[in-house]
């Protein structure tokens, strides 16, 4: 299995649109799964209105502590152990903010009275769907939760079980923990940029993240001609190849608004094939263990 991660730094440059097209192009010739790891704003499934569920929606949960009042001595060791500020002890009374808890279990392990028991808390879900020959897997964090990385890791685990020969990940924007978790384990990083100063600034951070993680990286210039900022010049200075270009057209912006795929547009689909072959040629080879 080869894993391509589609990311960008800046949001709204066209990650999901490009990922959906790459996956559609790839599914014509090989078993492919599109994995939506933008779990706070999952939109990839929206490009496949005819997709139907092919498996259960699986809940993603973490184990969070609950106080057994009859056993608690109010010693406060749990609060001192918690690095996330999820436990407050006032006047010997322990209050746990389960929404802030990361479920590390440290408090449970340090409690001398064994007064903390763990319960499952739902943080999101993963759903498997199919659109013709393409498999889809969506991770979705519950609204109000902050544990996006837990949902991302659960979606990655479930995607790996699908056994597709190519996995295309639609990653979240930014370069902090959700993006890091989403690109971790990828064989090639496809960064989507648009010709604006905002995009180039954020692309710089994404290129740095890929380099630090040792993932070979290429850039697709989307909305080419929309602005005048020199993405190609930036890529040359960073030593990162430009592996594709998609011209800006108002009609494309309009069909993007309705999440409509351009599967009949040979200009787009040929470019997708070129991007795929360049990414696969540049992907790191997995050691077979």
């Amino acid at each position: 299995m080869t894993v391509l991660a589609v990311a960008s730094g800046k949001g709204g440059t066209g990650k999901t649109t490009v990922a959906a097209h790459l996956a559609s192009a790839s599914a014509r010739t090989r078993s492919t799964i599109l994995v939506d790891l933008d779990v706070e704003a999952p939109d990839a499934t929206g490009y496949f209105p005819a997709a139907h569920a092919t498996g259960d929606t699986e809940a993603v949960s973490v184990l969070v502590p609950e106080v057994v009042e009859s056993l608690c001595t109010g010693c406060g060791l749990c609060a001192r152990a918690c690095r996330f500020g999820a436990i407050l002890v006032i006047g010997g009374v322990v209050t746990i903010d389960q929404k802030v808890c990361k479920g590390c279990g440290r408090c449970v392990a340090v409690c001398p009275a064994k007064a903390l028991k763990e319960v499952k808390m739902n943080v999101g879900e993963t759903t498997r769907r199919s659109a013709d020959s393409l498999d889809l897997l969506e991770g979705r964090m519950a609204v109000g939760d902050i544990r996006s990385t837990v949902v991302i890791e659960a979606a990655k685990r479930r995607a790996a079980l699908a056994g597709a020969s190519l996995q295309i990940r639609d990653c979240p924007p930014g370069v902090s923990c959700p993006a890091t978790h989403a690109i971790e384990g990828a064989d090639y990083l496809i960064l989507i940029a648009e010709p604006t100063e905002f995009s180039i600034h954020d692309l710089g951070a994404a290129v740095k993240l890929g380099r630090e993680r040792g993932i070979p990286t290429g850039v697709v210039i989307n909305k080419d001609g929309f602005g005048t900022a020199d993405v190609a010049g930036f890529c040359a200075s960073e030593g990162v190849p430009v592996i594709g270009r998609i011209a800006f057209l108002r009609e494309r912006a309009a069909s993007g608004a309705t999440a409509t795929l351009w599967l009949q547009d040979p200009l787009i689909m040929d470019e997708m094939d070129r991007i795929l072959s360049r990414a696969l040629a540049g992907a790191r080879t997995r050691s077979v263990s």
């Binding site: 709204g12 706070e40 704003a41 929206g46 609204v143 996006s148 924007p173 959700p178 309705t258 999440a259």
Partner: peptide, 26 residues
Amino acid sequence: PGIGCPVIASVTGCDLVLVVVEASAS
């Protein structure tokens, strides 16, 4: 972007949220 930890930190305690809706399905 998103609705996670840094967004909650950005909205907590504010007096007004200006919601920018992009007129697209996503």
